[in-house]
Design a protein around this nucleic acid. Sequence first.
DNA 1: TCTCTTGTTGATCACACGATCAACAATGCT
DNA 2: AGCATTGTTGATCGTGTGATCAACAAGAGA
Lengths: 211, 211
Amino acid sequence: MSSTPQKRAVRKSPAERAAEITEAAREIALEAGLSALTLRNVAARVGVASGLVAHYQPTMDTLVASTFATIVAAETQEVAGLLSQQPGPPERLSLLVETLLDNSRLDVTAIWVEAWTLGRRNEALAASVREQMDAWQKVFQGVVEDGNASGAFNVSDAAAVAWQILGMVDGLNAQALVRWNGVNDRGTHLAHAVEGMVGAARGSLAAKPSA
Amino acid sequence: MSSTPQKRAVRKSPAERAAEITEAAREIALEAGLSALTLRNVAARVGVASGLVAHYQPTMDTLVASTFATIVAAETQEVAGLLSQQPGPPERLSLLVETLLDNSRLDVTAIWVEAWTLGRRNEALAASVREQMDAWQKVFQGVVEDGNASGAFNVSDAAAVAWQILGMVDGLNAQALVRWNGVNDRGTHLAHAVEGMVGAARGSLAAKPSA
DNA sequence: TCTCTTGTTGATCACACGATCAACAATGCT
DNA sequence: AGCATTGTTGATCGTGTGATCAACAAGAGA
């Protein structure tokens, strides 16, 4: 932690300083949301004057957009990376749904939800949002198409079904953000829902007796 | 429209003025979001001084919260009212899903999404959000329980399934807010998903050959 | 007609925001 | 050692916010 007091910040290379600002922005966004990304806020965490942050960023809107992209892209890659270890499409889809609903990424969900609203007034952010949504949709679509090819699923429009699953996952996560208690077995219920959409047998995607 | 110029607003009864402010807030929220609910903004639409709005509202946070509740409760009642005309639970559930995904209420969806984020900093709003979510969930739960009783559905935890459907609908609507094109047949796909969750036969909830 | 109640005004305060930029000082180079 | 480069500062500007309140004036009751 770069604590409060410091007379003058040590001189650093532009690349290093830019990285510090990026990282500080990431932390602030995850803790307090994208709206907490102010010049003074970021500057304080890095331990520099507010002007320096402005000097490294053309506009705060772009910092918000790039911070969003950084956080969300990391999540996508992380989760997508888990898929390769699974044997077949049903297992991959099952893991995907199960993982995304495990409530361990609610801070990222909060950023998604905030971005949907902020994108209304921040065009750069809106573009990032669309881009990252497309990336997620492609992950789902790949799994659905593989399952179609292998005969495990029976879907006529894989792209549409992928969008649908993505929307459902987002909605359930957003819900968990507000109503975290009293709702049980999200994974199982969503698995049944997905079974209905991809034409898989009831129970074929529900959580296995783990380990 | 109460246009721009007016020397002094006509004197009105507190009840009438309060209603004007409430209505102006509703319109502004639907057009530009809850974050556009500022003292000066609301005052301008009503055609009074900013101080008057403050005089009628203890705090802007409470105006935001009550405006949210007003808008969302109206939507819930409107849609719930359509259900009574349907013969059985499958038809009711089908209509519910179909209606909520028809993209005619995206302005309300935008307010939901914004409220999820704003509730983080506005406790009154957060309470309203929970309250309205509960109301929606009860609507779904009622339909699911009726279907269970009639034998049309087979659900062990109607409350959980109701939450699940609600989350899915919200997520799909939020998605439509950002990505309104390229996604087809939301209603049909969600119907299949719901069939999977409630244990109904595939196709039994999908859109009928409408009138 | 006068008076008093009360709905209404708008200037004002303190604060926070993004952005700008002249002045500063640390560092590397000659 | 002296100099030039450049990373850094922080005061400052304009704007927007919620909130406050003394002053005003419209309207009802006497």
